[in-house]
Simulated assay, not measured.
Amino acid sequence: MTDPSTGSQTQGPGAEGVRLQKALANAGVASRRVVEQYIVEGRIRVNGRTVTELGTRIDPDSDLIDVDGTAVQLDVSKRYVMLNKPTGVVSTMKDESGRPDLRRFTKDWPERLYNVGRLDAETSGLLILTNDGDLAHVLAHPSFGVTKVYIAKVEGIVTAQTISTLLKGIELEDGPIKADKARLLDSSATGKGGSSLVELTLHSGRNRIVRRMMAAVGHPVSELVRRQFGPLHLGTLPAGKTRELTKIERGALLTLSRQESRENE
């Protein structure tokens, strides 16, 4: 059947496809019985339309499902991994110059994983590895502007005026840029002029943007770590370690990806 408000296709009880409760149970959302309760309660949408029929069938390859507004990945072959990339490692699967690359962190996973976006070699922190090409494209493409949070250790004592400048915007060689959020976390004076810790939130995907911004306001970066990517937080994951995203994190990431896709259509 066709939803007249969205034009999306939802297969009725007698149609081909997989029963909705079976597909969601296979995806690890909950048991079939619990999923059936979700359906009755109107907590599940197929292609943006709430469904309440227990006999509803879907096409797992094309239909988009969400539960309580959180997207669900029905393809259980998709893998989503968080890496705390250490410094000295380039964000590529094979570096032609022989530098340390990401292969050491993906070799223990049976799937062929690829990085979503990049962190430069001197920057550590949160990097996503996945075999979900559609999600990787959306989250990495500059036009989608996924928010990232960085902690930068910089040279010198950062003032409130400098924070204000970062928020109002500065001009770089490739155009203007401003931080979505900026705040001073700490500063300490030494005989060499001191140092400061600054937290910057940006949605720009431009190359080495944090380093160039801080250099432009007179505070070159000495250490840089990405603590957050979209809805994901690095937490206590040690440098050089990986872990699979939790079901909640995976849902949040997929929800963001689908929202960005719709807004940029």
Results as ranks from 00 to 15, higher is better:
99 R>Q: 11
153 K>D: 11
132 D>C: 02
177 I>G: 01
182 A>Y: 03
177 I>H: 02
140 A>K: 14
114 Y>L: 04
93 M>C: 03
158 V>R: 01
88 G>F: 06
72 V>A: 07
115 N>I: 03
142 P>R: 12
176 P>L: 09
202 L>P: 04
115 N>Q: 13
103 R>E: 04
133 G>N: 06
205 G>R: 08
172 L>H: 14
71 A>T: 09
180 D>Y: 02
67 V>N: 05
170 I>A: 10
70 T>I: 14
162 T>A: 14
118 R>M: 08
140 A>N: 05
203 H>L: 05
134 D>V: 00
196 S>F: 01
138 V>Q: 09
150 Y>K: 13
66 D>M: 08
96 E>I: 03
158 V>E: 00
113 L>P: 05
101 D>T: 05
202 L>V: 15
204 S>L: 10
186 D>M: 02
123 T>D: 06
132 D>Q: 01
95 D>G: 10
104 R>K: 13
86 P>R: 10
76 V>G: 07
118 R>D: 09
131 N>K: 07
199 E>D: 01
178 K>L: 04
131 N>E: 05
143 S>P: 01
90 V>H: 08
122 E>N: 13
128 I>R: 01
187 S>W: 00
118 R>I: 09
201 T>Y: 00
173 E>C: 02
198 V>G: 10
169 G>E: 08
143 S>T: 12
163 I>S: 11
191 G>S: 11
69 G>E: 12
130 T>G: 04
198 V>A: 06
119 L>K: 07
184 L>K: 07
118 R>N: 07
181 K>Q: 15
206 R>K: 13
101 D>L: 01
109 W>K: 00
118 R>T: 10
74 L>I: 07
125 G>S: 12
152 A>C: 11
173 E>N: 12
96 E>V: 09
120 D>Y: 12
148 K>G: 09
174 D>I: 03
195 S>P: 00
121 A>T: 12
137 H>A: 13
140 A>Q: 12
204 S>T: 15
165 T>N: 09
143 S>Y: 01
73 Q>T: 11
121 A>Q: 14
182 A>W: 00
158 V>W: 01
148 K>D: 04
138 V>E: 03
177 I>S: 07
104 R>G: 13
192 K>D: 12
86 P>H: 04
102 L>T: 00
173 E>L: 02
89 V>L: 06
118 R>K: 07
111 E>T: 02
83 L>T: 11
189 A>D: 11
114 Y>M: 06
115 N>P: 15
176 P>C: 05
74 L>F: 09
170 I>E: 14
173 E>W: 06
148 K>V: 07
65 I>D: 02
